[in-house]
């Protein structure tokens, strides 16, 4: 997104809560299903608070030095390069660790001294001890869905955060969001959201994850750019959600009831 103002439609009081947390220099944990607007919310809040966002998408090969920084080899030998976390700590800004449970647990331990009253980041390699900029804020997010069965946050990590729980928006709100994001007419979007809610009933039973708001927006964009609605639903809503032929056949049937 460029410099234009990001649209965000609050579901509840998350904007106020986040602002209070920011004012009190407290770290925030956001949980919610895939594509319900977690990242959008963080970007929106960063704009509101006029802070930069340093986003790190976590994966299981992420090491502490990916966050903190490492030595690199330059023309004149080695030099130290700050990682995204260190940069946010030094310059002030929101360090957003997306899908933090994907990272190995030893990685997240570097966050501990930053997320309590000390607000410091010790860098082992250089022996430096950085005190966090007043505008520094730590935000982590994860999806408490199926991955959570195997991976979860360490309890000692969790209890350092102010936690916000996100859900998919209500159908009325979702219509507004999808309309806004895709520019599609309201009537079609209403139908699309109804279909999305039919699909969400299948979560945990037939589908591992429900149709997210993001997927609905993608579908709406495809329809708007001229693809027939039923086809757009098939390629954006049915196929991405399942590989099972039986389930797909039922989804097709479901779509044909709507479009």
């Amino acid at each position: 997104m460029n410099s234009s103002v990001l649209n965000y439609l609050p579901q509840g009081r998350e904007v106020e809560i986040f602002t209070h947390a920011a004012n009190n220099k407290l770290p925030v944990l956001i949980k919610g299903p895939t594509g319900c607007g977690k990242t959008r919310f963080v970007e929106h809040m960063a704009q509101q608070l006029d802070r930069r966002v340093y986003t790190v998408s976590c994966h299981d090969d992420l090491t502490a030095s990916d966050l903190v920084g490492r030595h690199l080899i330059g023309a004149d030998g080695t030099y130290w390069q700050d990682g995204p976390l260190t940069r946010a700590v030094r310059e002030g800004g929101i360090c957003y660790l997306d899908e933090v449970v994907e990272a190995r647990k030893d990685t997240t331990v570097v966050l501990h001294p930053l997320s309590d009253h000390r607000r410091i980041l010790p860098i082992e390699r250089t022996g430096e001890l950085i005190e966090a900029h007043p505008d520094f804020m730590l935000v982590i997010s994860y999806n408490p869905g199926y991955q959570n069965l195997m991976k979860g946050l360490k309890p000692s990590t969790r209890q350092r955060f102010v936690a916000l729980s996100f859900e998919y928006p209500s159908p009325e709100q979702e219509v507004v969001i999808v309309c806004q994001e895709s520019g599609l007419d309201k009537q079609t979007v209403q139908q699309l959201v109804k279909l999305g809610n039919d699909l969400r009933r299948l979560k945990d039973h037939d589908l591992e994850e429900a149709a997210s708001t993001r997927l609905l927006i993608y579908t709406a964009m495809m329809i708007r750019s001229g693809l027939p609605a039923a086809e757009a639903c098939r390629v954006c809503l049915a196929q991405p959600l399942s590989d099972d032929t039986e389930t797909l056949a039922a989804l097709e049937k479901l779509i044909s009831g709507h479009f």
Partner: peptide, 15 residues
Amino acid sequence: QSQLATYYRALGGAP
């Protein structure tokens, strides 16, 4: 059978 079961749940039938 299994397609119909999925369809049934999607339309609000008990899982």
